[in-house]
């Protein structure tokens, strides 16, 4: 009795300890990998009986807290590239706006849900497999011979060098055209809006492979950017849909801010390649779960409207 709290917006009571541990788990992931954890938390909340819309909205409220705590921890470790973060953010906001319009058109055409799920499975499968194989190779190479990496100019790198408005990003230690973070921000923003997530798990691979930032800076910068995305979502959801359950968010938050602090420390201890492999495994796991939900016969053939 004592450990139960009533959630006024979700309209149900929940076990405080259960929610608190969920918060710690997701905060830990968020601190380690720089992802918001929305792609894990929202399904878990739905599983314990929180309505889907309330789960998604309250989760973004929680991520605001977790990413504040995570950004601060990574900032102290010197892992946040603010310049890059702002450029990605500007691109992300523009992309998000475009993405919302695309979703509207897809909904009108009728098969939006299906497209969203298939995009999810393809994206997660591709990103997860690529990261996994790449980091595995890197670890093997290191073990085989301690030879210094050969600096080779790939076609991609040559293309990057030719773009206008080159700029130094000191924290990341890269020199890039301003167009790169802006353009990729738009790309991730569109995908994130279509898939209905914060986009951390797409943003991280984009920063690692396309912007060529070092993994530790990627994590901090990603958290910094997620913070702003989720503040925006929380206020919009609370205003237009009344789906933010503050009691739920607060309990999750206590857990996740705690988890994020530990996560940042673990992140620093693990090597970049190990981090990548771990994240790739989680991404692949979510992909398999998603794929199964497409393939297996559902237990109940109807669901409440309004989830995502």
């Amino acid at each position: 009795m004592f450990w139960h709290l009533y959630l006024p917006i979700a309209g149900s009571s929940i076990n405080v300890l259960l929610i608190f541990s969920l918060g710690i788990l997701v905060g830990l992931l968020s601190g380690i990998f720089g992802v918001g954890g929305g792609f894990l938390m929202t399904p878990l909340l739905i599983m314990i009986g929180v309505p889907p819309t309330v789960a998604a909205a309250s989760d973004s409220n929680q991520i605001v807290g977790a990413s504040t705590s995570g950004t601060l921890a990574h900032y102290r470790l010197g892992n946040v590239d603010f310049k890059m973060g702002f450029l990605l953010l500007i691109g992300g906001v523009a992309g998000g706006t475009v993405g919302v319009q695309i979703i509207k058109i897809l909904r009108a055409l009728g098969n939006a849900d299906f497209l969203i799920k298939v995009t999810y499975v393809l994206m997660l499968g591709f990103v997860g497999s690529y990261m996994f194989l790449e980091s595995l190779q890197a670890i093997r190479k290191k073990k085989a011979a301690q030879q210094p990496p050969v600096a080779r100019e790939s076609k991609y790198a040559q293309l990057l060098g030719k773009l206008p408005w080159q700029m130094n990003f000191d924290t990341s230690g890269v020199r890039l055209s301003v167009l790169m973070p802006l353009g990729l921000g738009v790309f991730v923003g569109i995908l994130a809006a279509i898939m209905g997530v914060g986009g951390g798990f797409i943003m991280v691979p984009v920063m690692v492979y396309l912007l060529r930032m070092p993994m530790h800076v990627v994590v901090g910068t990603s958290l910094f950017q997620i913070l702003f995305t989720c503040i925006n979502v929380t206020i919009l959801q609370a205003y237009s849909n009344h789906t933010v359950d503050f009691v739920l968010a607060l309990i999750l938050l206590l857990g996740s801010t705690l988890g994020a602090q530990f996560g940042a420390k673990i992140s620093k201890k693990l090597g970049g390649d190990q981090l990548k492999i771990l994240l790739a495994s989680i991404v692949l796991l979510v992909m398999v779960k998603m794929l199964l939900s497409l393939l297996l016969t559902p237990e109940i053939m109807v669901a409440y409207k309004g989830g995502h």
Binding site: N61, V64, L236, A238, V244, A260, Q261
Partner: peptide
């Protein structure tokens, strides 16, 4: 109290929720 705030003053509620979340994150930090 929370229901009243959430349904009657949605924008304020959302803003407060975000600010409290940031404060909690900073405090933890």
């Amino acid at each position: 109290f929370i229901s009243r705030l959430a349904f009657k003053h949605g924008a304020l509620y959302g803003l407060l929720a975000a600010i409290i979340a940031i404060a909690a994150g900073l405090l933890m930090g």
